[in-house]
Amino acid sequence: MRFLEAVLRTVRHSRRLATGLVILGLMVLLALLSPLIVKAIGGSTDPLELAAYERWLVPGPGHLLGTDQFGRDVFAMVISALAVSLQIGAIAGLISTVVGVIVAFVAGYKGGWIDGLLSTFTGILLVIPTFPLLIALSAYAKNVSLFQVGVMISIFSWPFAAKTIRSQVLSLRSRPYVDLARVSKARDLEIIGTELLPNLLPFIGVGFASSALGAIFGLVGLEVIGLGPGGVIDLGQIIFNAINTGALTLGAWPMFVVPIALLTLLFAALNMINIGLEEVYNPRLRGVAGE
């Protein structure tokens, strides 16, 4: 209850954060409703089936965004691809955040050689150029599931979260209230869970948002250059098809423009959430003084 109140208060204090959350919320809603929307578009036929309709239909009342080279309804495709992209972001974001938080807490709280080892490893992963590695990895992953793609991408996106959260743990663990908890017989895990973690929620939120963003765009990047793992149709795949078939010259501009517009919107929303969270929790960035 108190947590919800805190969240509401936070949102009220930052218009950026609120805007970002609303846009993201709408997109998630759209993604959640995608099976229903797809059904509504297709009626009795599946609009995502190959040769469901005629090929390269221009946008019109029957097909709001036209059809693609296989005669699939572009609107239905974009909506379900959005759901896929968001899922990838959620999976990769979740995995990176969980791994990052665990590594950060173990390293930051335990210190000593454990910290040295984990921080060096994190640092190495951070400076490795991840995109070429992703290209190499995707060469081995032709028919992979959505979850596997998420795992693959999160291998490279957790170090960022780990790094930022570790530095916060380092600063928080020497706070007097941690000492007080220790002399009150609290165990390490209890201190991490009840004293440190709640104060780190904004940083964890930022870590999640940026890993999710990184994952979605990492995959889009792979697919636009035609190296995406097969079996997953996300927004990047549609963009690739549009480029590959010369859809723009055929008048099927929505196939190219709509996925990009959606991605831009998503990028803007997640960034607004990031900046908004930082603004709320980092007083130095606050626009106006006072509560």
Partner: peptide, 11 residues
């Protein structure tokens, strides 16, 4: 203990 800083002693 009673610590020095009454501000940071509370979470």
């Amino acid at each position: 203990p009673v610590f020095q800083d009454p501000y940071s002693i509370f979470n």
